[in-house]
Design a protein around this nucleic acid. Sequence first.
DNA 1: TGAACTAGTGTG
DNA 2: ACACTAGTTCAC
Length: 786
Amino acid sequence: MPRTAEILIPLALESAYSYAVPEGLELAAGDVVQVPLGPREIVGVVWEVGESASGSNLRPVTGRVEVPPLAPGLRGLVDWLARYTLAPKGSALAMTLRLPDEAAGTETIRVGVRAAGRPPARATAARTKVLAVAADGAVHGKSALAKAAGVSLSVVDGLIDDGALETVALQPEPVALPPDPDHARVPLSEAQAEAAAKLIAFLNPPPSAGEGACGAGGRGDRNISGEGGAPLSRPSLRRGPPSPTQVGPARLGHQDADLGQARDRVGGGSSAPAAILLEGVTGSGKTEVYFEAIAECIRRGRQALILMPEIALTAQFLDRFADRFGVRPATWHSGIGGKRRERLRAGVAAGEVAVVVGARSALFLPFAELGLIVVDEEHEAAYKQEDGVHYHARDMAVVRGRIEGCTIVLASATPSIETRVNAMRGRYAHIGLPERFGGRRLPDIAAIDMRLDKPERGRFLAPPLVAAVRSNLAAGEQALLFLNRRGYAPLTLCRACGHRYRCRNCSTWLVEHRFRRALVCHQCGYAERRPESCSECGTFDNLTACGPGVERIAEEVAELFPDKRVIVLSSDFPGGAERLRSELQTVAEGGCDIVIGTQLVAKGHNFPHLTLVGVLDADVGLTSGDPRAAERTFQLLQQVTGRAGRGDRPGRAFVQTYQPEHPVIAALLSGDAERFYAEEIAAREEAGLPPFGRLAALIVSANEREAAEKHGQALARAADPPAGVMVLGPAEAPLALIRGRYRFRLLVKTERSINLQSYLRDWLAQGPKIRGNVRVSVDVDPQSFL
DNA sequence: TGAACTAGTGTG
DNA sequence: ACACTAGTTCAC
């Protein structure tokens, strides 16, 4: 009976391929092997082994690759990910498998030195100092030794030549030193300590606790995911770990059953939530709280992963970690390459690296003994991966956590609606951290009704705001003016003929960037030189800028407060990321009186001197077609206004708006976030919007329509939460969507990767070029379709 | 993913 | 007739 193996290949292939297993080769699921594929040899992973009578005409596996096998948990994750995201299984595998690429060969050997016990032929003062330091007999790094002795490297080199020091090959520098859970236990507030204790109570004990009741729960979870003997090949959606966003009423039955089972298994009365939401207002000290859980996790000998949005992975955060644990944690992000990447993977797989701080791709590292995953800033849209395999890292963290039987913490000051709903429904536990650390209070927020307090013509700061800024400056304090619009003016029109400048691709208005002297499309990046005369009627010098962008606000502020130091911060900051960083530093140090910023200033960066925040147009974004517009705006405004205030007293915030009665604005003013979310959740449920439903469009060639309808049905069935699907032919292509007023994200998948932007541009210019298997999924108000 | 294919178009 | 491009298919 010929033996066969199902081999999954990390290419965009829908399923594993069958190969014959040659005599003498023993294979098990997870083994990494080399197989022939068409004309070439390629690496794949054994997904299943078996025997089959019909296997005689299969090509044989070439051989095993001597690397550690892919752990069952990760195989389960790949299966789950592919199924949930409708991605080819091979693509899902590729995410976990960044195999020893060409970098594997050349580890640079570091050289250390130690005293050879022989006096130098010639002793100088510098040489004596070096030998004094080296007298301990330990191995020193060359440059470290020179530095410790306060001499230059050449002195050390001279001693080596002399034979007084001998060289020793050093172990490669460890990717991360072991963090010490008890390095510096920072004093916690009462609320923090309480939250930390609750969090730690949720930590699963190490598996060595053996017969412990919770341990059994962990195992049970693994069984659900298809490990421990259950076939991995086809974890049905129902039996797989429940989807993280699974909140639709249709699915509740399953969830409850699931939770019930988990509870039975755990015994001891404690429920087993899929995750824990750690909600703490800005400045409440969430980080310190989950650091305690991480410390406990380390003490129990298990690993911890902290996921962060890529931009939030800052030196500042790593230093905070080092303050608490004595060393910086290992970091993982897309920029880490080659040697270091492989070493970190190996360290993680061997269980030597205790804590990894990483961007979303860290989720696919081969942790040996994962005990805790923290998703920091869980509401961040940056957790969405929108090319290749389309996934949300927060949700995948929950899935990975359940598969590995570990604890998942979702931390945020402004949790997403999805997470809130899960917490409300009892799927997630909820730990709140209501007060700011050190008694800091949230700022007082006041609305400025722009219908009543009009700015002067051509101005955008309302008088009450100007007055507030003025008194703030008089007190020598820093103010932030927030406007979420880059550039100078969002619209340019000709006063003579009324022509408005639109993007030739997207039909959105072109935004004037005065600094660059250009009109720019913020949708697709198209840019043209700002014309002198109207390109429609030819009238010279009669173009007028409509509405404000941050550049224009800077102009106005310069006129109002000519002697004050002003910094404009936006993501297109001239001079690049490096200059931007130093400007942020300047602001943090108080070397600036007025900051004018786009949403960049809402994220992460700390502005300790800020006491006043003015939101120039709170209504931006409220009218977009994005079903998450209200939620996003609320979170953004809450974060921005929350920047005001220092340790000694609360700050003030002013919000300019034309619709103070809008639910988002009203909630912001009243501080009643609870009510806002309750209403938002009810409205979404009513309308079938996320997290309760979603809509996808498949765009296909006319002759694939039938197949696409079928695929669409499958998509709708598999989608969770349940999806609506519509199939469009190329002729009715997303033109309507693109031209429409709705902003949406879309994902185009073809067999070949394409540049979405140029693709859409060409599409609009000349009609569809790619026929065939193009899939687009959109997150958009269904009203725009139906 | 990359090699091999096809259809359509341009070029001499 | 043939090169070249853009898009599609296939690989166990």
